[in-house]
């Protein structure tokens, strides 16, 4: 392999319709952000899948490490008081 620069990898997020959030759709290669947007339009919205696109270069994403999942996510598991079912109400109160 030569050491010259290849088109970097981009992550593509698409809003399928107004009112919904952008969702990760996949990735692609492009030389710059403008091309990444155009490519995303051509690759990921061929079947009318979107109304808005975000692209971000993959290397700019900071991700949590699954090795830390214990300390990051498990402590939230027993905080039941954050959920409505934790609280006792008389049956007469139908909706709250």
């Amino acid at each position: 392999m030569s050491d010259k620069k290849n088109w970097p990898l981009w992550e593509v997020f698409v809003r399928s319709k107004n009112g919904l959030e952008h969702r990760h759709f996949g990735s692609l290669h492009a030389a710059d952000a403008d091309m990444a947007l155009e490519n995303a339009r051509d690759v990921y919205t061929r079947r009318n899948e979107g109304v808005s696109i975000w692209v971000v270069e993959s290397k700019d994403i900071t991700a949590s490490n699954p090795e830390n999942n214990g300390e990051l996510f498990e402590p939230a598991q027993d905080k039941v008081y954050r959920h409505p079912t934790f609280y006792d109400l008389p049956d007469e109160v139908k909706h709250m």
């Binding site: 155009e38 051509d42 690759v43």
Partner: peptide, 11 residues
């Protein structure tokens, strides 16, 4: 010249 460009030209 690239997969992405191929798809764009076909569009």
């Amino acid at each position: 010249p690239s997969l992405e460009t191929d798809i764009a030209c076909t569009n």
